[in-house]
Design a protein around this nucleic acid. Structure first.
Lengths: 208, 208, 208, 208
DNA sequence: CCTTAAGCGAGACGGTACGTCAAGTCTTGCG
DNA sequence: CGCAAGACTTGACGTACCGTCTCGCTTAAGG
C-alpha cells in the first residue's frame, strides 16, 4: 500500500496501528473538511501521530488520500444473482453506494484531477482502485458467457476493447450522475442504465 | 459570467479587457502548472493585472477556473450529419477533443471535486458548462425523431429521464476514458460507444 | 497651511469648507483610531469628500496630521498673571491640557517620529507648531525682565541659548510626563516644575 | 525580553542565534528605512530568517522595535565623577549619544506614539527602557546625599515625586532638544542644562 | 541483558501562497 | 476645472500549511 522499504531488519519497527489510524483519520477529515481543506497536520493530530510519522510513510496528500479511499472499494464484490442484468445492477448499486459517501466523493475526483499531471499518481490510482473494479467486469462477462447470455470471445482483443468500453460507460455514468448531475444513482436509475446496456450488448451480439 | 453588479453608474468602470486577459491567463497557467499549483498571484501577473482586481471580480480560484474552462465549451455545436449515430459521433468527438486539452483536464475535474462540498459552485458549473452540453442531447433527440430514427415522446417525463441517462452515460464515458483510464477517446472508441448506445436505444424502442 | 498654488484663476475654485471638514475629520479619526490605524480613505469618507480632493491639497498622511494637530495649538496664549512663576504655570497648564487630548497625543509624537527622516516635515512641524509655543517663552522672558524678575540681556546670543534651553526643558518635561511616564501633568506637578525652574533661573541670575 | 514561555521541554528548541540576528537586523533596517518604511518581511530577510519565525517570537512591529531599541540602552551606566553635576552631565551625555543614533531616533518616538493607544506596549516600553534609566536617577540621588550635596529624604513620598520630576525634565529635555528642536545635545548644552538643574535643586534644598 | 538503530512526539524552521488592506493614481460622468 | 465615485497598481500585512529539521525519548531485535 505504501512505499516498500527493502527489508530493514534493525531498529524499532513501524507501528502497524499507526497506518490504520492515519487512514481512518484521513477519511474522517475528508468527510468534515473535504479535499482542499484537508491538511496533513490535521490528519496527524486526529490520528494521534506526529507529522513526521505520516511523511515517513506517504509522500504527500495525494498518495495518502488514494490509499484512504482505496480501502472503501475493498468491499465491492460480484454476487451471483442469476442473470447478467441482475449482476450488473447489483454491482453498480454497490459502486454507487460507495461513491455517495462524502469521503469518496471529495477525495476520489480530486486525486483523479491531480493525476492528470502526475503519472505515478495515476498508476497508483489504477492499481489501488480502478483495476480492482475492472476485475468485476471481467468476472461478470465470463459468468454471462457460461450462462449463454453473451457469445464467447472469438477475438480476444475485441473482447478486451469491449470490456474497457463497458467499464468506462458504467463507471463513468455513475460518477457523472453522482458528481456532475448531482442526482442519486438509485435503483430506478440503475435499472434504466442496465436495461440500455444489456439491450445494446444483445444487439451487438446479434449483429456480429 | 461573474457576479452581476446591479448597474453601478458612477466611478471608473471596470476594464473589459482585464476579464479576457485574466481568463486567458488562467487557461495558460492551467496548462503549465495544473490546478493545484495554479496561484492567483501568478494568474494576476500573467494577465498584467493586480491581484486585487482579480479578487474584485471572482470570489476565488474555483469560480475563476469554472469561467475559464467554460469558455472552452462555447465552441461545441451539433452539426447535422444525416443520422443519429453520425450526429452523436460528431459531438462526442468534439467533446473529447476539448476534454483532451490540458487546461480542461486539469481544471474541470478539480472544480467538480470541489463542487461536492459547495452548492453554489455546483450551480455555477451546471449553468456555465453542463447545461450547455445537455442542450445538444435534446436537439439531437428531436432531430432523430423528425428523421424517424427514434419514436416520439409519448411520456415527456420518461423522455427527460432518458435524456438524462444518455447524457450521463456519454459524458461520463468520455470523461472516464480520458481521465481515469487515461486512454484517448479516438474515432474507433467513439464509434464503438455510439454503436452500443444506438443499438440499446433501438432495442428500447422496439421493446416499448 | 497646505501647499500654496500660485493663483489659479480659471476653473472651479476649491471649496473652502472642504479644508475645515477634512481637518476636523482627521482629528476625529485620530481620536477614534490613533495615528497608525488612521487611513486617508476613512478621513475622506468622514469629511464627505473624495480621496482625490484630499490628495490635491495635502501630500500625505504626515502633512495632513501636522495641520490637523497644529490647529489645536492656536488657542495657546500667555495671560498676564502678575509673576514669572504664575505666567509659566498658566501656559504650561494650557499646553498640558492640549497634549492630554487623544488627537494630540496620538498624532503629535507620530509626526515627530516621522520627521526624524524627513526634513520638510520637520520644518513644517516647526513652523506650524513649535515656533508658536517658543514665541510664548520669549514674551514671558521680556515681561519678566520688565517686572525686574530677570536681569536684562547683556548678551543676546546667551539669551537665545537660555530661551532654547528653557523651552526644551519645559516642553520636553510635559511631553515626557504625559506620554512616557503616562501620568497627568496636573497643577501640583506643574507647580513643582515651575518652582524648580524659577529657582534655577534665579540662581543663574545671581551667579552671573 | 520577549514573551516568556513556561519551559517547553519537548520539540525542537528555538534558535538563540535567531533572536540576536533579528534584533540586529531590525536596528539595521531602522537606520536605513526608518520606522514607517520598516517591514517585517524585510527584517526577516536581513536576518536570514523566515517571517513566521519572527511572528512566532514577537507580536508585531511595535514589540520588536521596543526590544531592538532597548538593547541600545543597556550600555548606560552612572560613572562616579566626584560631584552631582559631573555625574549628571556624564549620564546625560551618554543618553544623548544613544538618542542621536538614527535607529534610536526613528524607533523610540514611534513606539512611544503607538503606546498612547496600547497599554501593553506602554508597559513594555517602561519595563524595557524607561525604568532602566530611572534607576540611574535614584542612584545619583543617593550618591549626592552621601556626598552631602543634597539633603537626606525627610519625606520619602516627596523624594519620589522629586525624582520623577527630575527624570521627566532631564530625559524630556534631551528628547525634545534632539528630536523636536533637532539640535545636538552637545557638551555645552548639557552643561547649561545641568547648571540650571543643580541650581534649582540647591535653591529648593535651601528653601525647604 | 544490553547495545543500537530506527521509530516516534513535539514543535521550530525556511518557504510559499493566501486573502485583505491601505496608499496613491487614474478614469469616468456631472456640475 | 473641481469634484465624487470607484477601479486601478503596488506592496505589506498577518495567517496557514507545506515539507524538513532537530531535539529527547521509546522500543524491539540481535549480539
Amino acid at each position: 500500500m505504501q512505499s516498500r522499504r527493502p527489508a530493514a531488519r534493525t531498529g524499532r519497527p513501524r507501528s502497524a496501528a499507526a497506518d490504520a489510524a492515519i487512514l481512518a483519520a484521513t477519511r474522517e477529515a475528508l468527510v468534515e473538511l473535504g479535499w482542499s481543506k484537508l491538511t496533513l497536520s490535521d490528519v496527524a493530530t486526529r490520528a494521534g501521530v506526529a507529522k513526521t510519522t505520516l511523511y515517513r510513510r506517504w509522500a504527500g496528500k495525494n498518495e495518502l488520500v488514494v490509499d484512504a479511499v482505496a480501502e472503501l472499494f475493498d468491499e465491492l464484490e460480484l454476487p451471483d444473482r442469476g442473470s447478467l442484468a441482475a449482476d450488473i445492477e447489483g454491482v453498480v448499486l454497490q459502486f454507487a453506494a460507495i461513491l455517495d459517501r462524502p469521503e469518496a466523493k471529495s477525495g476520489l475526483m480530486a486525486v483523479v484531477a491531480e493525476s492528470t499531471r502526475d503519472d505515478a499518481l495515476r498508476a497508483r490510482i489504477r492499481t489501488s482502485i480502478v483495476d480492482r473494479q475492472k476485475r468485476l467486469v471481467m468476472e461478470g462477462r465470463v459468468r454471462a458467457q457460461k450462462r449463454g447470455e453473451l457469445p464467447g470471445d472469438n477475438d480476444p482483443a475485441q473482447a478486451a476493447r469491449s470490456a474497457d468500453l463497458i467499464f468506462d460507460m458504467v463507471a463513468g455514468a455513475v460518477v457523472h450522475r453522482t458528481l456532475v448531475s448531482a442526482r442519486p444513482a438509485d435503483e430506478a436509475w440503475v435499472r434504466d442504465l442496465t436495461r440500455l446496456l444489456v439491450l445494446g450488448l444483445a444487439g451487438a451480439a446479434r449483429a456480429s
